[in-house]
């Protein structure tokens, strides 16, 4: 097993384990911390595929900003005190079964497909670097980029408007 494969499996196991812990852990704060671990594992995968820019942006945006917001909100609400009322067992079981079924269906579809064994070059390839991404972002995708900035602005204003106390 090469070192890349080793890293792949390590990161995958870490990501999956933490993802399951996100869903199962009782306290929302623990969920948030495990989700941060998932994001780090995924960033590790990006680095393995030499998508350096995405890896670092994933950490900055998801782990650095979004999850801080989540943590902030959870701390503000002091949710730990209140224990979440359980959904009834049947619905939980049904949820688990349907999720599992979806997984199995997808997996079986994938294994039948011809391109499932296509090789993926790890490392190498410089199109994941910020220079090349920036080139195509500001040439081919300029308009979506600008629109997304407007989206951001409207989201920010929206959040402020929603969060304001009604007088």
């Amino acid at each position: 097993m090469s070192i890349t494969e080793l890293l792949f499996w390590g990161l995958s196991v870490l990501a999956l384990f933490s993802a399951i812990m996100v869903v199962t852990s009782k306290s929302p704060v623990h969920s948030i911390l495990f989700l941060i671990v998932v994001f780090f594992a995924i960033s590790g995968h990006y680095i393995l595929m030499n998508a350096q820019f995405l890896a670092i942006v994933n950490i900055i945006v998801y782990a650095g900003a979004i999850m801080v917001l989540f943590l902030f909100v959870v701390m503000l609400m002091n949710l730990n005190a209140e224990s979440e009322p359980k959904k009834n067992r049947l619905i939980q079981f049904a949820g688990l079964i349907s999720g599992g079924c979806l997984f199995l269906v997808f997996i079986s579809a994938i294994t039948k497909s011809a391109s499932a064994n296509n090789l993926l070059q790890m490392g190498g390839g410089n199109f994941g670097l910020i220079k090349n991404l920036g080139m195509s972002l500001f040439k081919d995708y300029l308009i979506p980029f600008e629109i997304s900035s407007v989206l951001f602005l409207s989201a920010m204003i929206g959040a402020v408007v929603i969060g304001k106390k009604e007088s």
Binding site: F53, I56, I59, I60, A63, G64, V68
Partner: peptide
Amino acid sequence: LFVFAVVSM
């Protein structure tokens, strides 16, 4: 950006 990510962590 790495520095920035670490700072935000």
